[in-house]
Amino acid sequence: MMVETDSAADLCDAVVGGRDSPAIAGALRREHACRHGLLWRSDVAEPAVVVALQGLLGERCRRVGPAGLGVELFETAEGHGIVLVPRTGRLQLRIVGTTAREDREPVARALHRWLFGLVGVGVDTADAAADGGAR
């Protein structure tokens, strides 16, 4: 379990439903990557959630990459990348390449829960599991 920064409380909230879940986050799906299980995709349908994520990620993570090009790049304390395309709501999680192969999916799921926990959005884990991308 890699996502264990000061955001652990948020993560916990999101997982146990410690706060209201006004919307369901997009399912987490594995994207094809040059190394297995390092890229994960989720799509955020609600523009308000996208805006909230932008703001909170700016506070909680290190901003990397150029600004003003239509895509926001962040890095967590553990080095995982979070990329958000505000225009389309596409979210990509980039797991650190040295993460053990078997840990990549759990790490991605924890990061996904943490992210949506930040904005108080519940993650439909059943939906995510059924999506098939993670297998």
Binding site: E31, G65, L69, G70, V71, E72, L73, V83, L84, V85, P86, R87, T88, R90, L91, Q92
Partner: peptide
């Protein structure tokens, strides 16, 4: 081409 950077920028 498939990256979010491409999609966004």
């Amino acid at each position: 081409l498939m990256s979010p950077e491409w999609e966004g920028a």
